[in-house]
Design a protein around this nucleic acid. Sequence first.
DNA 1: CTCCTGTTCAAACGACCGTTTGAACTATGC
DNA 2: GCATAGTTCAAACGGTCGTTTGAACAGGAG
Lengths: 206, 206
Amino acid sequence: METPVESTRERLLNVAEQRFGEGGYEGTSLRAITVAAAANIAAVNYHFGSKEALLRAAVARAMAPVNAERRRRLDQLEAAGDPTAEQLVRAFVEPGLELVLRRGERGAVVARFIGRIAFDPSRRIRELYAAESDPVESRYLAALRRALPDATPDAVAFGYLNMQGLLALHQSQALSPSPDAENPGNLAEALVAFLVAAFHQGLSSR
Amino acid sequence: METPVESTRERLLNVAEQRFGEGGYEGTSLRAITVAAAANIAAVNYHFGSKEALLRAAVARAMAPVNAERRRRLDQLEAAGDPTAEQLVRAFVEPGLELVLRRGERGAVVARFIGRIAFDPSRRIRELYAAESDPVESRYLAALRRALPDATPDAVAFGYLNMQGLLALHQSQALSPSPDAENPGNLAEALVAFLVAAFHQGLSSR
DNA sequence: CTCCTGTTCAAACGACCGTTTGAACTATGC
DNA sequence: GCATAGTTCAAACGGTCGTTTGAACAGGAG
């Protein structure tokens, strides 16, 4: 071995990210993960404690840079005055899609993993994801309410939910062949335009 | 037995609808279904042939009235001239949410089932759903392109994908506590307004 | 060298999975 | 009556699941 290669723990997280993203939590066995990671079955329980703890660790690792970037953008926007709805939507959506843009194949794997887990059939798993994506939510909601004074708080919350959902949907690539699959940059622009229009026009009438 | 109660086949479909909608396909065992339906394990393979065939039958039964209503509305709209984007969005979204409105508790169960299966982690299952929801798709796309002459075909397809996705998301109740959970009528209106705005403003710039 | 801590390993645990079997039951047609 | 076709049943099939066990291995500290 020339390169000090990844540790067993890292290999498990990498493979878990990929397989959970492809087959979901229930649909992926620890044996499939450990074989692909060239690790022993018992390694999962040694390093993480259980299958669900492995998932939790993978979600936390995958969400950390996204949350950090969202926080950074929010700080920057709010330091310059009251941000517009478009700026806020951009600050939410782009960090989620930049994964795909900037990190090549691994970025696409991470994005699909995040998107898939966010909509897992099991409420338990969805809540596990929600806990990791929570930290910036209330700040975004407050800023959006300020940017859209004509919309009721309920309407803003409704829009935020739709934004979260559509982003996760595109991340997971669950929407059959997305027309922008081969061009993630266009996807981000199209999604931002779509959401901004919906926020501005579609919510005020409520 | 006084009432001729439902047949084993119907009870299996009803329970499958409910359980698959709660736990997803992988997360729901045939034993859980047959116990709740007061049927023998072997009944599934006798009446349907396999677990997947049971799912297929349940999806077909659940989608039939939705597809029929969408077709009916499309026929009616096109008979009266070129429909607007709002009319088309309404004709797509409302049949999917009317389930919840008109059929009480069972309607909500069916809606959640449909929404959940549409985003199942397994590509196989998603394709099974897509096959059932296909028949009206091309008609909608063509009508939408006519209603939005300023948007490119790709942009219209992108909007249709988002509409499909958001509807399924709200049907599945995967978006944590939806603010309109207790009032499905409002949900339909809000979703239509949200989507119509996005279609009109958000797609023309592409 | 010896101890010790951290890691990996093959093997097995009990539980649950979807599916199949063949016998038992039911009702209808003759 | 009897045969027949449709349905239900308990039981078992082989497999896979997440988890646990206890021994083997590694390498730095004393």
